[in-house]
Design a protein around this nucleic acid. Structure first.
Lengths: 241, 241
DNA sequence: CAGTGGTCTAGACCACAAC
DNA sequence: TTGTGGTCTAGACCACTGG
């Protein structure tokens, strides 16, 4: 029965990469490794922490991914002079966003047309002049109150199934996510003055500031859809980093 | 001399985790592994790809980090029904943002005061009623044209050095990044109507929509600074994912 | 050219959770 | 209970790049 690999009082005491991460981040934030500091090489850290280089490598790589360290072969690992900072925003479908806030979601299709794409849309999606598109205007509500106005265009050449959908019960957002889940997206945020539509449906005074998101989606290089989302007055996008 | 580990014609042909990643992502986006599909276990994939489980693990972990796969012990690895999507915005200092666009950056301090924090600020930063703060208003220009108006508050109790700084040549943003590089940040974006100050300095008509970012920063749990950034008309934040 | 990180292998133990 | 992913080890070769 001499099969115990460790002392009986220490069931497991190997150094984990999370411990290494925590310790190194601590040294950085508390100032002992200030901006610009050259860290010991991986082999040296492995010796200090009593683990393999693999573990140190994993820890340093993850810290580097956070934008705190700068790693280069031969040059070594340095604390960045200024951290590379990025804000990350979850982009859920509207329904999930509303339900996560504890409100009841409801959806209304306001209009639905199939027509030839207007010039500005052809330009943005690089469509031929005579491209046929679905145009939808929908309203998403939280607890009955207008939350987001959706102005959606779908390229029928790339997604002919969209022509058969009425989008009365299920919104185009959810339908698209289920139909074309792994697409490429470009998104932009801006402040705009409320147009007549937004004023009428979101309760903005006409000309009032509206938070607007515009999203264009491609799949396998083909343009799928373009959407303009106007949020209700007072909407904020918040995150921390 | 029988020390050759590989055939002479193949200098290196080990499977890399990037190759595995690419192939698996391909199978997902091209539809052969649709949403909800249960992937083979790591050992099976290792056999298929002719590499170790470690390599497969790395590949799957990175794809999972992208929000495409869902991994659980015993349950296995599945293609998410809807991808977890997040938009990432780089948050550089204004000067870098302007210079990256190829424009010339310039900075003006418009006002500088040391005073007792107003109530709303005490509430937001959880400061005592009599807290002393630095209040700055600054303008950042691109090629001479107003780009961003900065309305900054700094907590002197947490950062007494700020009291000795005039912020005439170097903006508070850059000074803070150099002084307190690794802090925690909460940021929010919204659309607001231009107030008198924004109208005067950014060329907005009064009441016009302005894109506003608000950022609050802590260091070791102590509130450091709060800033409100108003952008020039037409500003957009764009990214893709 | 030589030091540093990047990555792979082969094997092992373990934690978790579905069954 | 047992299959699955999570992680560590010990060692190796290699690619990049700074000096």
């Amino acid at each position: 029965m001499a099969s115990e690999p460790r002392a009986a009082s220490a069931p497991k005491d190997r150094t984990t990469f999370r411990e290494v991460m925590a310790e190194i981040r601590h040294r950085i934030t508390e100032g002992s490794w200030g901006p610009g500091t050259l860290l010991p090489a991986e082999v040296a850290l492995a010796r200090e922490f009593g683990c393999t280089r693999t573990t140190i490598n994993r820890a340093l790589r993850e810290i580097s991914d956070l934008g705190i360290l700068d790693r280069r072969r031969k040059a070594g690992t340095r604390v960045r002079l200024a951290p590379r900072r990025e804000a990350r925003f979850e982009m859920p479908i509207v329904r999930a966003e509303i339900e996560k806030a504890g409100a009841t979601y409801s959806y209304t299709r306001l209009s639905h047309d199939i027509l030839t794409a207007p010039d500005w849309l052809c330009e943005r999606l690089r469509l031929p002049d005579d491209a046929q598109v679905v145009h939808l205007i929908c309203l998403h509500r939280a607890n009955g109150a207008p939350f987001q106005l959706e102005d959606r265009w779908i390229n029928l050449a790339a997604l002919p199934e969209a022509g058969a959908e009425a989008f009365v019960l299920v919104g185009p957002n959810e339908w698209l996510v289920a139909t074309v889940p792994y697409s490429e997206v470009e998104i932009s945020f801006q402040a705009e003055a409320a147009d007549a539509l937004a004023a009428a449906h979101l309760g903005h005074p006409s000309g009032a500031p509206v938070f607007v998101a515009e999203r264009t989606t491609w799949w396998k290089g083909a343009p799928i859809t373009h959407v303009r989302l106007c949020y209700r007055p007072g909407h904020r996008m918040t995150t921390h980093y």
